[in-house]
Nucleic acid binder design. Structure first.
Lengths: 228, 228
DNA sequence: AAATCTATGGAACATCGTTCCATAGTATTG
DNA sequence: CAATACTATGGAACGATGTTCCATAGATTT
């Protein structure tokens, strides 16, 4: 930022094309996180990727925590800005939810991070986007806070689950194979202690995460509608 | 376990009262986690607490991850076993949810851990307990999986949020002071960009987490009832 | 009595986030 | 234009962590 100001003053466009900046560091971090998961993002790996030293990074970024938070805000802000605003409030809520879901599907580390640091820009955007549509839906004032909270917490829960799943099975292993192995474990459980889980095993095997996520959103919206 | 078998064979009750065991290690870990939070549980701190060395711990426990998972299973299993079974299915679901909520309120690290490693005994207990009551409620078979998933993911989301909050404000700082500071931040936001969040600031200031959590459960249950 | 197995405690290793510091590049000042 | 101050860099060094290795003590079996 101060760099840009100075550059303009002295009529010079850029210092060097390979100069460090907060933006470049965050972009590099996102790249490393997407490629190798949360564990891959170390300060040394980041420094090597940017062909610099650890100390240079700490000049632009305070913490590794701040770096992760900034990367998360970046991804979520992009999701929110790319949302189409045409449809009605109900469809808009589904679109916001699906946008977050898909973003976490592509960047699983975002799920864990949304979780680790709430009360941040990324979460604010989601709350505002969901809450605004609830008002448009005609939800009474007294029920708005609880309704928005329920939707956001549900989204957060699925986000975390997805992030955890992505951490469990390595990127190469097939997803359906993973589901099949969990289903097999469920079927092998004691029928006396876990009758329900055993019954759900077959449905788990070939369920669609995305569709099930949306079904949950619809359930909560249906519940909110009963308050109206 | 093999220890107990041997002790019985040789007619000796115990080796020494201070002998290590998986149970004692897990209990010590829970104590450290409750006292100092997630960050306080290091292998060295655990070894010092048990007056032994790091290597001895790894004889009974494979990993730090396994230790955290075992501690979580322990806490959740205790919650589930202490549940009163008298009420109807709807009340039972609320009781399960509140049991998990309260447990995480006392042991915030459980929230983060439930989140980090699903598909584990602790999560199975919750799914089974919730799902079984849904069947008792008369939810049609086709909607049972999605309904249970929605409830569990919501519980998980709140769990994670609570764990994160507990991590943010140190154990000494007042909770209402923390909420007030977040509310102040919300009120200072741009009214054009965040109208909803600003409106919710006053309600955030003195809302009850536990009551709001239960309101969310009721919303989802109301939504599930519409499918019936 | 010897040998074998279980269990222990601490040293050692690799890796991590972070801090420190010498210094190169740029801007400002006298 | 020379001197000074400031921004930014890259790598060395520090403290802490999870984990492995290993010498060895205690108990059990041969």
């Amino acid at each position: 930022m101060s760099r840009w100001a100075m550059a303009k003053k002295t009529h010079r466009i850029e210092r060097r094309t390979d100069a460090l900046s907060r933006e470049r560091i965050i972009a590099a971090a996102i790249g490393i996180l997407d490629a190798g998961g949360e564990g891959a993002l170390t300060v040394r790996a980041l420094a090597a990727y940017l062909a610099t030293g650890s100390g240079a990074i700490y000049w632009h970024v305070a913490d590794k925590g701040e770096l992760l938070a900034a990367a998360t805000d970046d991804v979520i802000a992009r999701v929110m800005s790319e949302l189409e605003g045409g449809a009605g409030p109900r469809e808009a809520i589904r679109a916001v939810a699906l946008g977050v879901f898909d973003a976490i599907d592509v960047h699983p580390w975002v799920g864990a991070q949304l979780f680790r640091e709430p009360w941040r820009p990324a979460m604010l955007e989601i709350i505002e986007s969901v809450g605004g549509r609830l008002q448009a839906l005609g939800v009474p004032r007294a029920a708005q806070f609880d309704s928005a909270s329920a939707l956001v917490h549900y989204i957060l829960g699925v986000a975390g689950q997805n992030a955890a799943n992505a951490r469990v099975h390595a990127p190469d292993t097939d997803r359906s194979a993973f589901l099949a192995s969990v289903a097999a474990q469920w079927e092998a459980l004691d029928p006396a202690k876990y009758p329900f889980v055993r019954q759900m095993a077959t449905e788990l095997r070939d369920h669609d995460d995305r569709a099930q996520f949306l079904a949950g959103i619809d359930l909560i919206l249906a519940g909110i509608a009963t308050v109206k």
